[in-house]
């Protein structure tokens, strides 16, 4: 693990743009270190997630090796809820025994925190280091992202002082109410981490034992093989919230067997907003309305013959502003 972190730090110090302002370099450096740590560190632990009255206790394992990244999130308690990612492939086991196999798009290159994104970050948030603290028994640095307007949430992050790993995170709205938070209660960094669950091969048949394979064949909803192509779709956001820039535009399938949708992605450096447009002819299952899950808001509405869905880690007003100003400008 250590050489990897060393490499990450070496890459950070040589990154262009970061050196420009020494006052900012430190804070941005932390964010980048955290991003590298999230991808390169081997760790396993238990964390508590809380949003309103909703509390989840989950176990998380992350391993990075020559074959790439493998991670698993297991909900503890209740029916089986588990998500396993093996590089760009994601398996979901969510309650009803369904196994969704997805191919992760756009997740190949990391970190997504490009230099231009880091400069956007400073335009939209006042970043400062908070007090030193503890998290899961580890010494932590804290970073506070105070938004410069009310179009985004405030974030506070506790980062492990040695590895940069995120130990705690709190998201607050404008009056200072907690939208959601999570914190490791127990964390092991490096060392002997259980790897039995790691998916060894891209073929789903080979990665499961016999009983799992039977379940897989019965319930498999989709196989890998979804596609994504960069396009100029013609769809526009007329009143894009200040500070957001388009980072991706593609035509993609969300699951194999489904018709492709248009997917636009905007970011203010920290939060992301996705805009999905699909034809009503696809008979989408989503019902129009505004939905919240902690920091994430989803707003769905019908625009002409299309279903428009906006998803983002931003306040409802920001999601609505985007949704209400989407139009087809022609190709």
């Amino acid at each position: 693990m250590k050489p990897r972190i060393f490499l990450a730090l070496a890459m950070l110090s040589s990154a262009p743009g970061v050196m420009a302002d020494p006052a900012r370099q430190d804070d941005q450096g932390w964010l980048k270190t955290m991003a590298f740590a999230a991808h390169l560190t081997d760790y396993s632990g238990t964390f508590i997630y809380q949003s309103g009255s909703h509390v989840e206790i989950s176990r998380i394992t992350h391993v990075s090796d020559a074959a790439g990244e493998h991670e698993r999130l297991e909900g503890l308690g209740g029916e089986r809820r588990e998500i396993i990612r093996n590089n760009d492939q994601v398996w979901c086991y969510l309650g009803d025994g369904k196994v969704l196999v997805k191919k992760r798009e756009g997740g190949g290159a990391f970190p997504a925190l490009l230099p231009e994104q880091l400069s956007a970050l400073n335009e939209n948030y006042l970043i400062r280091q908070g007090e030193e603290d503890m998290g899961a028994g580890f010494h932590a640095h804290t970073l506070i992202f105070q938004p410069r307007d009310n179009l985004r949430y405030a974030h506070k992050m506790w980062s492990h002082s040695d590895s940069g790993l995120l130990l705690k995170a709190v998201v607050l709205d404008e009056p200072g109410h907690v939208i959601e938070q999570y914190a490791f209660t127990q964390l092991t960094i490096g060392g002997n981490i259980d790897r039995k669950w790691i998916v060894p091969d891209k073929s789903p048949d080979k990665l499961l034992d016999k009983s799992q394979r039977q379940q897989h064949q019965q319930h498999i909803v989709a196989a890998p093989g979804t596609t994504a192509v960069a396009v100029v779709s013609g769809w526009q956001v007329g009143a894009l919230p200040d500070g957001f820039r388009k980072i991706l535009e593609m035509r993609r399938t969300l699951r194999e067997g489904k018709a492709p949708v248009t997917h636009l992605v905007f970011s203010d450096g920290l939060a992301g907003i996705s805009v999905f447009i699909e034809s009503l002819a696809n008979k989408p299952e989503v019902r129009p309305g505004l939905y919240s899950q902690g920091v994430i808001q989803i707003y769905s509405k019908i625009v002409d013959d299309n279903l428009l869905t906006v998803v983002g880690e931003v306040p409802p007003r920001t999601v609505l502003q985007v949704a209400e100003s989407v139009y087809f400008g022609g190709q």
């Binding site: 991003a35 991808h39 991670e71 997504a112 995120l166 991706l248 997917h263 450096g269 992301g272 880690e313």
Partner: peptide, 9 residues
């Protein structure tokens, strides 16, 4: 695709 995933994994 969200940048927040990059930090929180």
């Amino acid at each position: 695709v969200s940048p927040s995933t990059d930090v929180a994994g």
